[in-house]
Design a protein around this nucleic acid. Structure first.
Lengths: 238, 238
DNA sequence: CTGTTTATTTTGTGATCACAAAATTGAGAA
DNA sequence: TTCTCAATTTTGTGATCACAAAATAAACAG
């Protein structure tokens, strides 16, 4: 899945004379790498434990190792990637401690975020969320875990983004990057059919402009989605 | 303040033959740059709006621009540095919205963190915290804002670190990196003598193993430290 | 076949380079 | 002076290189 124009790669014609494509805009390559890796993490295409190598990712995306290095450093700072003591980078493994702490943090921050968002949400947003939720239902019954994760993220952050938050929102985004790869492995084990859709009540709360109801719906959604794991055997390995 | 051995810099002897120092260990240079910038931010030596340039920082620390690039990317991902649309990097400016949100996030996360830490804190920790607090008192009366900020960070995170948290702790660290530079400008304006020391009660709560009391003390400390700004004129500029 | 040791490959790290976009400076005209 | 525009410098970006540590593969001895 090359992300850059083919003229960009293998730019080695004459010595000490590197030809470069016009470069659509400043930092476009890094941005594309960043989005590619983020999407891969959020949709579970990067499995916990998976090794992430500079040259590997660079070749896979059709770019030089340079922008990949910077993106990896950024994602490592967000704890979305794990830099081992020997420098190797991998998708973090989940542990029981990490999981329960993420659950706690999500409940704390995402309920707050949804309350903040409430005052800026109107019926137009409710309709959009309804549309997304329909796609979510479809992804659940069809067992398309990747689509489910993408849409579920879209649903939640469509709400949170209305909060106009510049502090809490990035923190929550970091949390999602951390637990998403593990959730994907859970869906692979127990499927997606067991998922309960708590989104209907969230939409209803938004339509009624009831902040408390939205808070409860978000709480229920988080606890349903992640609490399920508690009954399945939390730690993937001891 | 060169951070690397003098043998490392100006390593340009013969063409295409770079001499390198034995390299104490893997990633040591980047780690030193990272700690240097983090300390500068946390102690307020980097003022909001200050431009952070690759070559500038690299030369100041006596390293090549390479490790600086990676560190900056990491700190930008933690919102500790602000990457403008044109690629320039600077210490973030504070706004009223950001400030109140940071305050809210601190109250949410740091109280939780202190409660988690309580069960692992013993009298040895209390004595250490007392020692730190004495130094804090001294820094306040002497008006040494930089020392105060360093010690205050040390005090809080000595507590939080006992929580053995791997999720919430990095989030809070990100918050401190974000508000520290601004706080320094406030201390420069109104001085440090107005600061109220709420740490005594926190230490007392730890000695008594009273989680609720610790929560209250941390809450009071945060609100005292940051609530003061509300009476001084929050936004540095509109 | 098993365990150990050596050779090979992979991989992160620091450094340097070339280039373009952007900011800054400088000169000249009104 | 003040404005405008060209020249210069600064700065981030992508690319490539050299090196060492680490991981893997390959020999080899038992």
């Amino acid at each position: 899945m090359p992300v850059a124009s083919s003229a960009n790669q293998t730019a080695k014609a004459s010595p000490s004379k590197t030809v470069r494509a016009p470069a659509a805009q400043r930092g476009a390559t890094r941005l594309q790498v960043d989005q590619a890796v983020r999407n891969a993490l959020l949709t579970g295409r990067f499995v916990p434990g998976k090794a992430v190598t500079l040259r590997g990712l660079a070749q896979e995306l059709g770019v030089s190792p340079m922008p990949v290095r910077e993106v990896i450093q950024g994602l490592a700072a967000e704890r979305a990637l794990d830099v081992k003591p020997n420098g190797r980078v991998q998708v973090p493994e989940m542990t029981a401690d990490r999981f329960s702490e993420i659950l706690k943090a999500r409940l704390l921050l995402e309920t707050e975020l949804s309350c903040m968002a409430m005052e800026n949400l109107d019926n137009t947003d409710a309709k959009e969320l309804t549309s997304i939720d329909l796609d979510i239902d479809e992804s659940i019954i069809s067992g398309n875990a990747e689509a489910y994760m993408r849409l579920n993220h879209l649903f939640h952050f469509r709400i949170y983004r209305a909060s106009n938050s510049s502090i809490l929102l990035p923190l929550v985004e970091s949390l999602w990057l951390q637990f998403a790869p593990y959730m994907r492995t859970v869906y692979g084990r127990v499927g997606t059919v067991n998922l309960i859709d708590q989104h209907k009540e969230a939409i209803h709360a938004i339509s009624n402009k009831n902040a408390d109801a939205l808070r409860n719906a978000i709480t229920a959604d988080i606890q349903d989605g992640m609490g399920m794991i508690g009954r399945e055997g939390l730690p993937p390995e001891a």
